[in-house]
Amino acid sequence: MSLSLAGNAGVVDILHDITLEVAAKDTLGLVGPSGSGKSSLLMLMGGLERATSGEVEALGHDLTTMDEDALARFRRSHMGVVFQSFHLIPTMTALENVATPLELAGQAGAFDRAAAELDAVGLGHRTGHYPAQMSGGEQQRVALARAAAPRPDILLADEPTGNLDQATGEAIMDLLFGLRDRHGATLVLVTHSPRLADRCDRVVRLVDGRLDTDSRRAAEAAE
C-alpha cells in the first residue's frame, strides 16, 4: 500500500509499496528516523488516513472501502488510539473523556467503567478535572484509559512518551503494556526509543517510506 499527500510544494510520496501483516495479540514497534512515515503508517492502520493505493485490512475488514462514519464505528468497536500530544477534549473532564467512546459505542454503565479505567491508571482521584488542570503525564494516562476503556482488539500508540520526561515516560509505557497484557490486544507502537522498541515482540524499521528491516525479538527468534 502507498500514501501520497498533496502539500504546498506539490505531491509528496510518504509511503511506498508497504506490505505488512501484524498477527493478532502481537506487539509491533515501528521505528525509524523522523519523516520516515512511521506515524503515517499508524494512521493508515487506524483508518485515520486513507491510502492512495493498496488495501488496509483489519480484523478481516477492508478499511479502504469504508466511509468516514463506518471507520468511526469500526474504531469504537475495535480500536484504541494514543497520541504523543494526548489529544484529550479540553471541554471535558477526565471522566467524560474516558466515558465518551463507551457512550458512542452505546455501552451501558459507561461512567462506571470509565471510573474503573481511571482508577486502573492511578487517576481515580482526578475524575472531575479538566485536561488543562493536569500535568502531561496525567493527561497521557487519561488518554491511555480512554483508549483501553472499550477493550479494543487493537491498540495504536503514536510516540506516547514523546512529550514526557523519561521517568513519566517509563511509567506510561508500563501502563500501556500492562493494559495490553490485561486485555490481550494487538499493540502497534510508534517510537524513537530503542528501549521501548525492545519491549515489543517485533520491530519494523522504516526509512524514507519503505520497509527497511523487520525483526523478531531475539528470544522469540531463537524459539
Binding site: G46, L48, E68, D69, L71, A72, R73, R75, R76, S77, V81, H87, L88, I89, T100, P101, L104, A105, R146, P150
Partner: peptide, 11 residues
C-alpha cells in the same frame, strides 16, 4: 478529529 478517532460518526 479526536471524536472521530474514538468512534464518533459525523451525524
Amino acid at each position: 478529529a479526536v471524536l472521530k478517532t474514538i468512534g464518533a460518526t459525523r451525524p
